[in-house]
Design a protein around this nucleic acid. Structure first.
Lengths: 142, 142
DNA sequence: CGTGATACTGATACTCGTTCTCAACGATTG
DNA sequence: CAATCGTTGAGAACGAGTATCAGTATCACG
């Protein structure tokens, strides 16, 4: 599978892309599937997964692993940015502040790695959940 | 299930903890299972998962999602640190340099989140894979 | 228009990591 | 010794994602 020779923008793929562009949250593949079924009722989940993978590989979408052990999320914003994830409600918002270059260089020097990128997720409580209710906070990892 | 009332250090749990402490890599649950079977031959995978969850919840181990979509990894080093993951061989090494406090504060201010922590993984090539061979690099995410 | 090549589709079976269920086991207490 | 209750191992169940496959749509060309 060296290079895509051809690539059609089928109705299904268009629908997936529309859903992704219309979403201001960061839907999982399953959520994308649900929403796409409104515009393309007969669509199968495999097709959604394939379309998402295609969009990611062609740079039209980003696949996010928000490090909470749950399913991958997708984002039509393809510029470099990170996320803050609410530990209570799972909502993710964009963070546009990059890690300082000096820090990356220092880490490359110390570890011997060639650093090609990084994934950074902040954890905490979103404004709604801070005020919202006093429910129990699950608390995960580190 | 408010608080652990009792907690036995059973041979199985001890074996899991030993494996974790002896590991200088960051084994997945499946790898822990394999290694534990040497010391505790009849052990079941469910027991290993339970022991790992227990160790994590009592602060004796850390569960890592290295953001590459693969299985969770475990680490007996419970102090705050991040990881650099090799994109070719999957190896993870520890990174001890924290994100500057000012950056975290700035992000909390801008997003309105109460930040309780973060997960940071650097991606790149480890020293071995840089020199090692010219194989094909997979290339994932962002 | 017909024909063949090939990309794409949806259904479904499957894999894999992880969790759940449950009967049996074992340690502790009275 | 009996009752209790946390723990165990086997295996079923689960959810996300992938592979397979037969059928369909689209394209290039004569």
């Amino acid at each position: 599978m060296p290079e895509r020779t051809e690539l059609r923008l089928t109705p299904q793929r268009g629908a997936v892309l529309e859903v992704l562009k219309a979403a201001d949250d960061h839907p999982t593949a399953a959520e994308v599937y649900e929403r796409v079924r409104v515009a393309a009722p007969g669509i199968g989940s495999a097709t959604v997964y394939r379309a998402l993978a295609l969009l990611v590989s062609t740079g039209h979408a980003l696949e996010l692993s928000l490090g909470d052990g749950t399913a991958a999320r997708y984002d039509a914003n393809t510029s470099r940015h990170d996320h803050a994830v609410c530990e209570r409600c799972g909502r993710a918002v964009d963070i546009d502040q990059p890690v300082p270059d000096g820090m990356v260089a220092e880490i490359a020097r110390r570890s011997g790695f060639t650093i090609t990128g990084y994934d950074l997720q902040f954890r905490g409580l979103c404004p709604e959940c801070q005020s919202g209710g006093a429910g129990q906070g699950p608390g995960r990892r580190q």
